[in-house]
């Protein structure tokens, strides 16, 4: 790992920088590093914040000093290649596409792409999107891998309130709004699943390093899932990613 750098981010955290580009390869190294750190016996670790190409490590200098910690982290990095990393999980998110209520901009996205609405849905549901990181708001995922065929510009005038669960496209990005918020993404559908629920045992569903795959559902299934989700009884399907099949 010749390119990895330790950068100071104050006296109670540091940034372990793996590179300076957005790539699945770098993100996979960060995922391996996080798994290795979670398994390690390094004392004083408080919190890890993985991002596109770096991982922030919060620690207690009363337990371990900067000098001692960087030494231990270098040891973890040296052994990174020998660690067995389980395949990433794929989190399946059911989505009701189109319609004035749920996906008012699907028609625009289809027209912009020169495709039918069904073709846009087929393309959007065909990909396993890598969750590079979360940020911006609780549960907001920065996803990679959307087909450029369905890319679409942002709305000229952002909406004042977009309901939680809305699935949108902005440029080459796609994602889900985890909380009600203003925004300018083209809305193509909505998931009945709560990506974020502060009172749930696991408040945030998606995790950096996982993949998301959207699955189209009809209105009946949407309502069924929404009712179960409201009672906290709906569990998203999560399955290990088959790298070969994904290609």
């Amino acid at each position: 790992m010749p390119t990895v750098r330790f950068l100071l981010t104050g006296d109670t955290s540091l940034s372990v920088e793996f590179g300076n580009e957005i790539s699945e390869e770098i993100n996979a190294q960060i995922r391996a590093f996080v798994i290795a750190l979670e398994k390690s016996d390094i004392p004083g670790l408080i919190e890890l914040v993985p991002t596109y190409r770096a991982c922030m490590v919060h620690y207690d200098p009363g337990v371990i000093t900067y000098a001692a910690l960087t030494k231990r982290l270098a040891g973890v990095l040296d052994r990174l290649d020998s660690i067995v990393i389980p395949p990433s999980d794929v989190l399946e998110i059911p989505v009701l596409y189109g319609g004035e209520e749920m996906g008012p901009d699907l028609a625009f996205v289809a027209a912009h792409a020169g495709l039918s609405e069904q073709e846009v849905v087929n393309i959007h549901t065909a990909t396993e999107y890598l969750i590079y990181m979360l940020g911006f708001t609780p549960g907001f995922t920065y996803l990679g891998g959307m087909s450029e065929r369905i890319a679409a510009p942002r709305l000229p005038q952002p909406r004042v309130r977009i309901p939680a669960g809305s699935v949108g496209i902005a440029g080459k990005q796609t994602g889900v709004y985890p909380i009600d918020s203003p925004g300018g993404w083209q809305l193509i559908g909505r998931t009945p699943v709560k990506m974020y629920d502060p009172n749930r045992e696991t408040p945030i569903l998606p995790k950096a390093g996982q993949y998301i795959r959207f699955r189209a559902v009809d209105r009946a299934e949407y309502d069924e899932i929404a009712a179960a989700a409201e009672k906290g009884e709906y569990v998203c399907r999560i399955y290990p990613r088959d790298k070969e099949a994904a290609k």
Binding site: E17, N20, E21, V49, T51, Y52, A54, M56
Partner: peptide, 10 residues
Amino acid sequence: IISDGIAFGA
């Protein structure tokens, strides 16, 4: 930059 984490006092 490519987004990364932010500490208190950054």
